[in-house]
Design a protein around this nucleic acid. Structure first.
Length: 584
DNA sequence: GCCGTTTTCGGCCCGACTGTTTTCAGTCG
């Protein structure tokens, strides 16, 4: 029996939904499977064990049929219903859904009428002009499919935050400078601080929407205009990133901003709450829902806060809008006061030219002062990371001396903590002996090799490291590189429990390639009493800017100022690091 | 397939845009 994970359950449910769509099944049944996948994916608890034990009663959205199917899948590793559906279509057909402009109806037509079952077959059929002949298709559709196929080979379909943020801020600035724009903001997953984004959404309030969409389509950055109407325009930038503009009236603006910020799941939950109050909510406003018996006046709405207030909720920060308990918390008035960039007083885990950084200790210190930080933690690589010019004991102790000199001269302005990003070796031991580590102010323990251990062994390896008195924090927990490499297998729950027991901090690595540990785990970790540190892992001064991405992760993870070590004043950090780990 | 202080049956979010049509289906968000 193959090993069943949460991922197995969600992907099977999603695949069933797709296959049912191909067959032209009842759309509501299809949605039930999709929602089932969503619920399983974000379930707070060991959903795999619950499914195996047939203990799924009372989970909203998982009815009798899905319970049976999940139980069968979790206990046997297979699901007959799924296998049978799958056998009706070739495997390559799933790739067709990824082509822009192709949905279930068109994919079904391509397969049923032309036998197209793979991307190469699709390309060939378009080039032969066969696709244009199908009813419901035409010359333009055929051309667009070819373009979409070419684009797939050339561009990524998702983008990391530094790329997306840079483009978004440039365009937002231009929008706000436009004389006909009253208010403007970017919405979508970027506003929610997701770890990667698929496209950018801009909302503007204006009295001249058509003029704005026209202007947007002519932006310098627009490599291609995908669509343009009187209220909506989509362009594609040179790097393939799609940007959508929605132009609305000033009255509609808060609704459009709320709606397009999402998430979809959050909005669905919000709308159903509105309906219970006799209100219908969409991207343009509130209206009376159902049989309008006697409708109370709908309160005026000027901004997002008013929308939430009308629904009896505190304003929910965009980062929390994932339908993971934020609506309930807002209802009870117990939303956390989230940490902000301005709360940060220092930062740990930064590199210098001593290992693989591009700036000297003095340059990094100078940049930290310019940023207004009160303290800085240096943590260069250890000797096992020879590819990164890791420090041996001698060079490390020399650096400790240099930092001492810095503190003698500049400590009043910027205090530097001497540390090490010490490698966790394959067996969980550390790259430096305890007596060396004891001479440092702090350490970040990270895995830089032997990534392919199985989950149990990898988890044991990390736990052994955390049990060391001298390990202050764990670096980039899973080693993932977003859009490039999955993290190594590790049992997050056990790591979080161990961090809580041993008093080990888990860093949020703020590098936009990592953003590790993932935001989805932080609320749980926080509730167990685990502390984090927002670490830019800066290899050059500009990379202190990564802190803003880490703040996004922390906020998405429901973290408050008091959950983040580097919001503490210097004296408190010194006191904290001076205490034995267990007492922190 | 799921759900129920309107319902155990009959609902389930919907508006904008494009392309293929000749009044609308499909896709997207």
């Amino acid at each position: 029996m193959s090993h069943v994970t949460r991922e197995t359950l969600t992907s099977v449910l999603e695949e069933i939904a797709l296959l049912l769509e191909l067959k032209g099944e009842n759309p509501f049944k299809i949605r039930a499977y999709r929602q089932g996948a969503e619920i399983v994916g974000s379930f707070d608890g060991d959903i795999v064990a619950r499914a195996r034990d047939n203990d799924l009663d009372g989970i909203k959205g998982i009815g009798a049929a899905l319970q049976d199917k999940l139980h069968e899948l979790a206990s046997t590793g297979e699901l007959e219903f799924h296998q049978k559906l799958r056998a009706e279509y070739p495997a390559g057909i799933f790739d067709l859904f990824d082509v822009e402009g192709l949905g279930p109806k068109k994919v079904a037509a391509l397969y049923n009428k032309l036998g197209i079952d793979s991307l190469p077959a699709l390309k060939q059929a378009c080039e032969d002009g066969k696709v244009a002949e199908l009813s419901g298709f035409g010359k333009k559709t055929e051309q667009k499919i070819l373009e979409a196929l070419a684009r797939r080979e050339k561009f990524a379909d998702r983008f990391r935050l530094h790329t997306a943020t840079h483009a978004a801020e440039t365009i937002l600035e231009a929008l706000r400078d436009h004389p006909k724009v009253l208010r403007a903001q970017y919405a979508g997953s970027l506003r929610r601080s997701r770890e990667t984004v698929g496209d950018l959404d801009f909302i503007v309030a204006t009295d001249s929407p058509a003029e704005l969409t026209e202007w947007f389509s002519r932006l310098d950055q627009a490599n291609e205009v995908i669509a343009r109407g009187d209220t909506k325009c989509s362009i594609r930038l040179d790097n393939g990133l799609q940007c959508d503009l929605r132009a609305v009236s000033n009255d509609q603006y808060p609704f459009a901003l709320q709606y397009f910020t999402g998430s979809k799941e959050h909005n669905v939950a919000l709308r159903s709450r509105a309906l219970k109050q006799g209100l219908s909510l969409n991207e343009y406003g509130f209206s009376a829902a159902g049989k309008a018996t006697q409708h109370e006046p709908i309160p005026a709405v000027h901004d997002e806060r008013d929308i939430y207030r009308t629904l009896g909720l505190d304003l929910i920060p965009p980062e929390l809008r994932e339908n993971r308990g934020e609506i309930e918390a807002a209802d009870e008035g117990v939303l956390p006061r989230l940490v902000e960039l301005e709360n940060l007083r220092g930062t740990f885990h930064n590199h210098t030219t001593a290992s693989d950084g591009h700036a000297t200790l003095e340059e990094m210190g100078g940049a930290a002062i310019e940023l207004g930080l009160r303290y800085l933690g240096i943590a260069d690589h250890s000797k096992a990371s020879f590819q990164a010019n890791g420090l041996d004991e001698e060079r490390l102790l020399k650096q400790v001396e240099e930092i001492g000199t810095w503190n003698d001269n500049h400590g009043e302005e910027l205090w530097i903590f001497s540390g090490s990003e010490v490698d966790i070796l394959k067996d969980g031991s550390l790259d430096f002996a305890d007596d060396i580590l004891a001479r440092l102010d702090y350490t970040v323990a990270s895995v830089h090799g032997s990534f392919t251990l199985d989950e149990k062994t990898m988890t044991r390896r990390l736990i052994r490291a955390m049990e060391n008195e001298h390990v202050t924090m764990l670096g980039h927990l899973t080693g993932r590189l977003l859009l490039r490499r999955d993290g190594y297998a590790v049992n997050h729950e056990k790591i979080i429990d161990c961090a809580a027991e041993t008093g080990t901090i888990i860093e949020i690595n703020c590098n936009p390639h990592r953003l590790d540990m993932d935001w989805r785990w932080w609320r749980k970790a926080r509730d167990r009493g685990v502390l984090t540190s927002l670490n830019p892992d800066a290899h050059r001064p500009e990379q202190f800017q990564f802190l803003k991405f880490g703040i996004g992760v922390a906020r998405k993870g429901w973290l408050r100022k008091e959950d983040v070590l580097n919001t503490f004043p210097l004296e408190e950090v010194k006191e904290f690091l001076g205490k034995p780990k267990k007492q922190r």
